[in-house]
Amino acid sequence: MARRIMRDLKWCDVTPKADFLTRRQLLAGAAALGLAGPATAKLSYVQSKFSTDEKPNAFEDITTYNNFYEFGTDKGDPAAHASALTIDPWSVKIDGMVEKPGDYDLADILAGVTLEERIYRFRCVEAWSMVVPWIGFPLGDLLARVGVQPSAKYVAFETIVRPEEMPGQRRGILEWPYREGLRMDEAMHPLTILATGLYGEAMPKQNGAPIRLVVPWKYGFKSIKSVVRITLTDSQPKTTWNMLQPREYGFYSNVNPEVDHPRWSQATERRIGEGLFGGRHPTLKFNGYGDLVASLYAGQDLAKDY
């Protein structure tokens, strides 16, 4: 029955924007009067000592300038097409070398979690950067809850595959699913978070709703979006960009001005939102988080382990 109704839905059945805006205003008004309780879209969260005091990019910049090839290769494609993605229900399969494997509903993952605002610098491998006020919680907390077996050395992640809702997946731009991975110490690092929102609200779909990884000292493509699988493993996982161009995208992909991408320099970056004449800023090693993460790579040759 429900199916039949769904199939009969037409564009004219979509709630007009004016109506739902009115509804939101009513909810906001009710909330202001203390009536509506948790019905508002705002997430509740606490501040974090890990936040930068740099000014975040505008919400519009963050939500209209995205690399999310599942929706197309143009920066505007995710904002144009991501609305088709169904994010409720959502579950994440946690498997591999873990004490409590299973398909976890998103609500279960978030139950009892204290969300934090983490205002992080975000540096893309394409040499542009932003500052994003993420809302999330440490990945390490989730891993601790599901129990990591001592033999596990890496964490692998996968993005959802749903070509009927993700037009980019209907073409062979990359090998789907999108895959990423971290070494265990990177995954357990307090800077590494699973983010479920930004600017105090639920994660926009073009930014990787409903749950994505954020690893602020690595190039942006490591911060995998719309995660549906987390696997604990003892071997270094395959990662999408590395599979495509191993010379250009390493497993570690730490932000590093001293190691250039073979086709362009990583010494400087352009900060999105600075207009036509913003120029370039020097790129900081580990994206400026070196005092917190450099020790993870002691003894490693980062020109080799790029």
Partner: peptide, 9 residues
């Protein structure tokens, strides 16, 4: 021209 006018131009 959106978030990144430099690239757009």
């Amino acid at each position: 021209l959106g978030a990144d006018p430099v690239k757009a131009i």
